[in-house]
C-alpha cells in the first residue's frame, strides 16, 4: 500500500505540490490526469524518492520513503518507474539493458538474469529483438523495453510517467496495450497520462490534478461521467 499524506514539494519558490493526500491499495490502478505543471509527474518522482519532499510523508508498505535511515536503493527494487523519455542504455543490447539491474542490483547469476529478461521481453513482445541495440528500434519498442527493464526487478508497484507522451501517435497503442495487460494481471500501478480513453478503460480510480492540488478523485464513471469540480469540468471539456 502506498500512502501519501499532506505532501508538499517546492522547486525554490515555486510550490508544485500543495498538500497531496492519496492512498493506493495493492492491486489497484490509479491514473492521474491534469494539465502541464499540475504536479502529477513530480509526485511520481517523490514516491520512489528520486525527489525529496518539503513536508508531509509518503509510506510504502510501512516504510517511510523520505526518512533518513530508509535504504532507497532497496526500496526502489519494489517500486518500478518508467519515464516519458524511456532512457534506454544505448551501449547495451536490449537483452543486456534488461539483465543489468537484476544482475548488479539483485546479484542474480547471469543465467537467472537472462531467463528473467527473456521472459519479460517476450511478455512485452520483444522476443525477436534481444541482440539488437536500442538505437535500432522505434520509440514504442524502446519504451516497451523500458517497461520490461523495470518489470525484470519484480516490482510490487509500478509508476508510469506519461509513457506515451513522447511517442508517435502510431506507436502509442502498442505501449498502452502493454500497460493494459499489466493492469489486467493485477499489478499495482499509478499512471500519469494524457490518454483519457486509456484512463477510463483501465483505472479503478482517476485523480485530477490542478495547480499542485488533487482537485478530484473518483471512479472513471464518476470523474468522466459526472465531474464535480469546476476545474475538472473545464479540463475535460478542453480535452474532448
Amino acid at each position: 500500500m502506498i500512502e501519501i499524506k499532506d505532501v508538499r514539494k517546492s522547486f525554490s519558490t515555486l510550490e508544485v505540490l500543495k498538500g497531496i493526500n492519496l492512498t493506493v491499495n495493492k492491486g489497484e490502478v490509479v491514473t492521474i490526469i491534469g494539465g502541464s505543471g499540475s504536479g502529477k509527474s513530480t509526485l511520481l518522482t517523490c514516491i520512489n524518492g528520486l525527489e525529496p519532499i518539503n513536508a508531509g510523508q509518503i509510506t510504502i508498505d510501512g516504510t517511510v520513503v523520505h526518512a533518513k535511515d530508509t535504504d532507497l536503493n532497496k526500496l526502489r527494487r519494489k517500486v518500478g518507474i518508467v519515464f516519458q523519455q524511456w532512457n534506454a542504455f544505448p551501449h547495451l543490447t536490449v537483452l543486456e539493458n534488461v539483465m543489468l539491474a537484476p544482475r548488479k542490483v539483485l546479484g542474480l547469476s547471469k543465467e537467472k538474469a537472462e531467463e528473467i529478461a527473456v521472459k519479460q521481453l517476450t511478455h512485452v513482445g520483444l522476443r525477436e529483438k534481444l541482440t539488437v541495440y536500442p538505437s535500432r528500434m522505434s520509440g514504442g519498442q524502446q519504451q516497451r523495453m523500458a517497461i520490461a527493464r523495470a518489470l525484470a526487478m519484480s516490482p510490487e508497484y509500478m509508476l508510469f510517467d506519461e509513457v506515451t507522451s513522447a511517442l508517435d501517435p502510431m506507436l502509442v497503442g502498442e505501449v498502452l496495450d502493454t500497460l493494459k495487460m499489466l493492469a489486467e494481471e493485477g499489478m499495482t500501478m499509478i499512471c500519469v497520462t494524457h490518454e483519457m480513453a486509456f484512463a477510463r478503460d483501465v483505472s479503478d480510480r482517476v485523480a485530477f490534478f490542478h495547480q499542485g492540488v488533487m482537485a478530484e478523485i473518483g471512479t472513471p464513471d464518476q470523474l468522466f461521467g459526472a465531474p464535480q469540480h469546476p476545474d475538472t469540468q473545464a479540463f475535460l471539456a478542453s480535452v474532448r
Binding site: I81, F83, Q85, N87, A101, K104, R149, M153
Partner: peptide, 17 residues
C-alpha cells in the same frame, strides 16, 4: 543526459553503480 543516471538509480543502483 542526467536522465541516464536517473534511470539507473530508479532501478535500485547506487550512485557508484
Amino acid at each position: 543526459p542526467d536522465t541516464q543516471t536517473r534511470a539507473g538509480r530508479s532501478l535500485g543502483m547506487t550512485p557508484v553503480q
